[in-house]
Every structure is written in structure tokens, then in C-alpha cells.
Computed example of a mutant assay.
Amino acid sequence: MATRNVRALAAAFCAFGIGSATHGAERFGIGRPATEAEITAWNIDIDRDGRKLPAGSGSVAHGRTVFEEQCASCHGGRGEGGTGERLAGGQGTLATAKPVKTVGSFWPYAPTLFDYIRRAMPMNAPQSLSDDDVYAVSGYVLHLNGLAPEDAVFDAKLLSAIRMPNRDGFIPDPRPDVKP
């Protein structure tokens, strides 16, 4: 029954032109196609291997400063959590009755940490940090989890080389249409 309702709704959208952004712009006089520059500005995803990481670098020390200014109010001074998620600790807890999912215990790939911070943080001003600041904060969060020394300077090469403790803790998707 639910599938039939979804199909009927989809058919109605198509019949009335609701499914077409171009048609809606013409018909209602609102909206416009995105420009190439707008698409490029949002096409910033980083894959798990770090192949699309940008140029730049940031030290753990600088990451501590940025974290204190931009992140600690939500995530706690040492990543222990607060109004925002806990970021540090939890190693060895995933198989227990009370797993603690953090960057250090659960996160599978360090380059995707960069992607998430750059795309979504700080929550009140996403995409406001420079790439150098994002490398620095990523390094600091990895340092809080014992995965990077205090004197490390992160760039695309070093961030991609970090092997996260839970990298092999996920079950591969067996569907043939999904590429690893």
C-alpha cells in the first residue's frame, strides 16, 4: 500500500511539473539553475583515501588554539563532550554494553574527519574555517585520541597516512553497484 501511495505521489509531481526545477522556475518565476562557480564551491567532498584533500597544513598546536576558540564550547576543552558530541576517548568500548563512539574509537578514516569539520563545523558558522585551520583542528582531535604527537603538522599526505583504530570495524557493502 505504501509503495502504491509513493508511486501515485511521484506521478502527480511529474504530471504537474513539480519534479522539474527548470519548469518551476519558468512557471512560477522563482529560482534559477546553479552556476558553475556555485557548484564548485559546494563540491568539496573528501574521500576516505584523501585523494581530494586540498593544499595546506596545520599544526596540532594551532589546532588547540582554534579548538579552544571555535569548538570547546560545544565539545568540551579536551573533546569530552558537552552540548556537542564527545570527540575523544572510548577506545576499546565498542564491543561493550555501553560503547563510547568518538573519533578515536569509531571513526574509520582520518581524511573524512577533515571533510566533516570543513563542511559542518563550527555548527554556528559551517565552512568558515580555512583549510589550514581544518588541518590543524583535525590534527588536534587526532592528538586528543592518542593518534598524533603534539608536534605534528598535518597536510594531505600525513592525514591520509593515519590509520584509525576502527578502520576494519565495518562490514563491507556487498551490493555490486556500490564501489569501495
Rank of each mutant, 00 (worst) to 15 (best):
T3Y: 14
V6W: 13
V6R: 15
A12P: 08
A12T: 15
F13V: 12
F13R: 15
C14F: 13
A15M: 13
F16D: 15
F16T: 15
F16E: 15
I18M: 15
S20K: 08
S20G: 07
S20E: 11
A21W: 08
A21G: 11
H23V: 12
H23R: 13
G24I: 08
G24H: 08
R27D: 03
F28C: 00
F28S: 01
G29F: 00
G31W: 02
G31S: 02
R32G: 05
R32W: 05
R32M: 07
P33W: 00
T35E: 05
E36K: 08
A37V: 03
A37T: 04
I39M: 04
I39N: 03
W42Y: 12
N43R: 09
I44H: 12
D45G: 11
D45S: 13
I46Q: 06
D47T: 13
D47I: 06
R48K: 12
G50V: 06
G50N: 10
A55P: 06
S57Y: 07
S59V: 01
S59W: 03
V60D: 02
A61K: 04
G63K: 00
G63E: 03
T65R: 12
T65K: 13
E68Y: 10
E69Q: 13
C71K: 00
A72W: 00
A72E: 03
A72I: 00
S73Q: 08
S73L: 04
S73T: 09
C74G: 03
H75V: 02
H75P: 04
G76M: 02
R78F: 11
G82T: 09
T83R: 13
R86D: 05
L87T: 05
A88M: 01
G90C: 05
G90W: 02
A95E: 14
A95Q: 14
A95M: 12
T96A: 11
A97P: 10
V103D: 03
V103H: 00
V103N: 03
V103F: 07
G104L: 00
S105K: 06
W107L: 09
P108A: 09
A110L: 00
P111C: 05
T112N: 09
T112G: 04
L113P: 01
D115V: 01
Y116R: 11
R119I: 01
P122R: 08
P122I: 11
P122H: 07
P122L: 09
N124V: 14
N124R: 14
N124A: 15
N124W: 15
P126H: 10
S128L: 10
D131Y: 11
D132Q: 07
D132K: 04
Y135N: 00
A136E: 01
A136H: 05
A136K: 03
A136Q: 00
S138E: 07
Y140V: 02
V141R: 06
L142T: 02
H143N: 11
L144W: 05
L144N: 06
N145G: 10
N145L: 01
L147T: 01
P149R: 14
A152V: 04
A152Y: 07
F154R: 06
F154A: 06
L158I: 10
L159G: 05
S160F: 07
A161Q: 12
A161Y: 06
I162V: 15
M164R: 02
P165V: 05
N166H: 12
D168P: 01
G169T: 12
I171H: 14
P172L: 10
D173V: 10
R175E: 12
D177A: 11
D177W: 09
V178W: 06
K179M: 12
K179C: 08
